[in-house]
Simulated assay, not measured.
Amino acid sequence: MSKDSHPHMRSFGRIKSRPIKPRQAALMDSLLPKVRCPETPFDPRALAPAATEVWLEIGFGGGEHMAAQAARRPDVLILGAEPFQNGVASALRHMDEQGLANVRLHDGDVRDLIARLPAACLQRVFILFPDPWPKARHHKRRLLQAELVEDLARVLAAGGRLRFATDWADYADWSLARLLASPHFDWPAARADDWRIPPADHITTRYEEKRLGDCAPVFLDFIRR
């Protein structure tokens, strides 16, 4: 596990639940050190000079979406950040089974990773179904705060895209308000179907199919000005 530290309030809960399966535990020892993002400032292009774009998935869960996108776009380098060790282990399994060479992982808080990235180095960012922290007293723990919006604006190139998805109505409203308040992002949605219907390139995960929230999934796609 990465030993990052930062002044921000923790936006995630536990970092481990059930015991990690032996095969995945072995990958944590053998594969993770090879695909872990550098722990000092770095340019992601240096990790994959032939990549046409660099994407970031924040909180990739079990890694299904990230792995599927990486398989679909082998020309893209995908950075994935996830503090939950079981999720990291699951992602490593997907990478190993599919032979994915275009994924790099950060097993910790994404804000530490973003701080190491140069400006305008990303073309896409995914934040899919993050912890909603539904109780009002916990809203300060939600990931998508104004500070993170600013950080994402710094690392996204002009024309880059940010996708936020949630199945909690209040979190959708919360996130939309913060992104609309930013001078760095445009929301091109023109009708309800633009956020109610999954985007054509979206990949549904098992978590999404469980419908644990209080509304149908909402997809908010923004463009960096």
Rank of each mutant, 00 (worst) to 15 (best):
G13F: 12
A50I: 00
R141M: 10
A119C: 02
S5K: 12
A68N: 05
A46T: 14
G99R: 12
I203Y: 10
G63C: 10
A181K: 11
L212D: 13
A89Q: 03
K34S: 15
P33Y: 04
D214K: 06
S5A: 13
S5W: 09
R225T: 06
F42K: 05
W55I: 09
M95P: 02
Q24A: 14
L212H: 12
D75I: 06
A46K: 15
R154P: 00
L100D: 08
K34Q: 15
H138M: 11
D201Y: 10
D167T: 06
D107F: 02
I203N: 00
L92Y: 04
Q98E: 14
D131E: 12
R93T: 00
E147I: 14
L27M: 07
L92Q: 07
I197W: 04
I78V: 13
L79R: 03
L27I: 08
A153G: 11
L32E: 05
P44G: 05
T205F: 11
P132F: 14
P33E: 04
W187M: 09
S11V: 02
C121N: 05
Q123F: 00
L113D: 11
L77G: 07
R137E: 13
A136W: 00
G159L: 14
R161Y: 04
L31A: 13
E57Q: 07
Q69L: 15
L122I: 00
L92K: 03
D193L: 13
A172I: 05
S17M: 07
M66A: 15
A146E: 15
W55E: 09
A26M: 03
A136I: 13
R141S: 04
D186G: 09
A48C: 12
P199H: 11
W195R: 06
R154W: 08
L220H: 02
M1V: 10
R154I: 11
G13N: 14
D96C: 02
M66H: 03
E39H: 07
D131P: 01
A165D: 00
P188C: 10
W187T: 00
I20S: 06
D96R: 08
L122Q: 03
P44F: 07
E53N: 09
G87S: 09
L176M: 08
A190G: 14
H94Y: 11
P198V: 03
E97H: 01
L100G: 05
R116S: 01
D131S: 10
A165T: 00
S182V: 01
C37E: 07
S17K: 13
M28H: 03
A81C: 06
R72S: 12
G108M: 05
I203G: 00
P74V: 12
P134T: 13
M1I: 08
I20M: 07
S90K: 10
L100K: 04
P130L: 15
A81I: 03
R10T: 11
V149N: 06
D4C: 03
L152C: 11
P132W: 14
P41D: 03
P183A: 14
T204W: 03
A115I: 07
E147A: 15
H106A: 08
K140N: 06
P41K: 10
F129C: 04
F222V: 06
A158I: 13
G159S: 12
P130Q: 15
R206W: 10
L105D: 06
A81R: 01
